[in-house]
Design a protein around this nucleic acid. Structure first.
Length: 491
RNA sequence: CGGGGUAUAGCACAGUCCGGUUAGUGUGCCUGCUUUGGGAGCAGGAGGUCGCAGGUUCGAAUCCUGCUACCCCGACCA
């Protein structure tokens, strides 16, 4: 009644928008294309950050911070890079306002024009490589393994909460290496970190692979990615890791003396994931009742709702709940006890389902008498009555089951939506009627990929690492091919 | 950036075509009482520069012009 969701079936994209707003994850702001991430949504992002940050540090990386503004001239130093980003850059041209002549508000002071315009970073390769130049002289200075948590701006035409906003939050790793192989190894290492995070924490299966030349990052020699499948059959790039070769080292003249004293250009990588992962998380698991959050990322894993008629009943329940809370917390489980009298239990049940809290405990007078508690799990919407004795172990086990259960469910869905096709008619049919990933032969040419995109909107999502050598004919051109790649309609 | 739509109370909407009492309805909010195992009931109450800026008119939520934001569909992109 209070918060009705559009159903997924009726209108998937409306369902997503409703859910993000009604579950209190984010909302549109007064600024075009920019969102406000609300506390409940930000709590999930913080959990993602905390785990990713831990994984980065475990793999030898350190955090640093580089400027938001990038001198325009830096941008043009790497040709592919500037071409890739030029169309979506916000530019700072002035540094001062003054009172409007007519006394109404303020205007830009034309006298305060910047000598050189500043670009609001859409990504930081240029400012970082300009900096690394000063940090690197010898092979002893390498590798540099920096990450930064930051906001970036890409002036998008059409925006959607979390999936595509003009400003978004992300992390960008930027590493410098003495050898090509070391940089390539780093690129693979980080895409594996992303895949492990997606699967173990987001409970979202992903496919690791290479991007085709058309989809490659502007300025990279190779882009590795993790690709996920959403419940509407569209695919979503969830993370990327780029082997940049010596492109940026050459553009910014970053050389080091190797062990023989010879000057060599440095090898580079960059890699990132963004708040887009929030969108992926929503679309991977949620249903018509609201969010379904994996226990490892839920702001709180358990909510306890008291059921009572009179205040003295509530007192007795609250005493029992205090014990349960203590036991759960001792197991490392996060708990919220909602004893507010403002809402009825039924309202709370619906609200916490909408917000995706993995486990709900309800305790009433009947339970106090019997020494039991009602346990409801969000993913399956099932309920059972359990003894309070040993509840902490029971809930701990249940949270693991849920984490595993939603992963398995997403994996089954994903695997059912990878379709091998060998004819162009079949390709178009599967794309239009089933969606998901289409595994097909491709002749390796950008022209063919572009033609397929023009005709069907489908692009090559990735060339999977585990693609098997197999003789075949390109789905479109009929030319020879030696492995299948994955096509799909992307977010 | 092109095509279409929308903007009125915290939220969802009616009223706009055809200008004219004090701008309504639902929900939410506040107070009180009764309620509480799946989105409670009754009674009373507060809450509006009708997106912004101009214009037409005795009079504008309503007509005209410009602007802004959001949604949907395309092109672009993580």
């Amino acid at each position: 009644m209070a918060k009705e969701l559009t159903s997924m079936k009726e209108n998937y994209s409306q369902w997503y928008n409703d859910l993000v707003v009604k579950a209190d994850l984010a909302e549109n702001s007064a600024v075009r294309g920019c969102m406000v991430i609300k506390p409940y949504g930000y709590a999930i992002w913080e959990k993602m950050q905390a785990e990713l940050d831990r994984m980065f540090k475990e793999t030898g990386h350190v955090n640093a911070y580089f400027p938001l503004f990038i001198p325009k001239s830096f941008f043009s130093k790497e040709a592919d890079h500037v071409e890739g980003f030029a169309k979506e850059c916000a530019v700072v041209t002035h540094y001062r306002l003054k009172n409007a002549p007519d006394g109404k508000g303020v205007v830009v002071d034309p006298a305060a024009k910047l000598e050189e315009e500043l670009i609001v970073r859409p990504t930081s390769e240029t400012i970082i490589w300009n900096t690394y130049k000063n940090w690197i002289q010898s092979w002893r200075d390498l590798p540099i393994l920096c990450n930064q948590w930051a906001n970036v701006v890409r002036w998008e035409m059409r925006t959607r909460l979390f999936l595509r906003t003009a400003e978004f939050l992300w992390q960008e790793g930027h590493t410098a290496h003495a050898t090509k192989q070391e940089a390539i190894d780093e690129t693979f290492k980080m895409v594996n970190v992303y895949a492990s995070f997606a699967e173990n924490f987001m409970a979202m299966p992903v496919i690791k692979g290479h991007k085709s030349a058309n989809e490659r990052f502007a300025g990279a020699l190779d882009t590795l990615c993790i690709e996920a499948l959403m419940q509407d059959g569209k695919t979503l790039q969830a993370g990327t890791s780029h082997f940049l070769g010596q492109n940026f080292a050459k553009a910014f003249d970053v050389k080091f003396a190797d062990k023989e004293g010879k000057l060599e250009y440095v090898w580079a990588t960059s890699w990132g994931v963004s708040t887009r992962l929030m969108g992926a998380l929503v679309m991977a698991h949620s249903d018509d009742n609201g969010l379904v959050l994996p226990p490892k990322l839920a702001p709180f894993q358990v909510v306890i709702v008291p059921i009572y008629k009179k205040d003295d009943q509530l007192k007795g329940i609250s005493e029992k709940v205090a014990e349960i809370e203590k036991q759960l917390k001792a197991e490392g489980i996060s708990v919220k006890y909602d004893d507010s009298d403002a809402k009825k239990p039924g309202w709370k049940f619906a609200e916490y389902e909408l917000k995706g809290v993995p486990v709900r405990l309800a305790i009433g007078p009947r339970d106090l008498e019997n020494g039991t508690v009602e346990v409801a799990r969000r993913d399956t919407l099932t309920k059972e009555v359990v003894n309070i004795e040993g509840i902490e172990k029971y809930v701990a086990g249940l949270l693991e089951k849920i984490q595993d259960g939603i992963y398995q469910k997403a994996l089954d869905f994903r695997d059912k939506h990878i379709t091998s096709v060998d004819t162009w008619d079949e390709f178009k049919d599967v794309l239009a009627n089933k969606g998901g990933f289409i595994s097909a032969h491709w002749d390796d040419s950008p022209e063919t990929e572009q033609k397929i995109k023009d005709e069907t909107k489908a692009t090559i999502r990735c060339i999977p690492f585990d693609a098997v050598e197999e003789k075949g004919k390109c789905i479109y051109s009929g030319k020879p091919s030696n492995k299948r790649v994955l096509f799909g309609i992307a977010y």
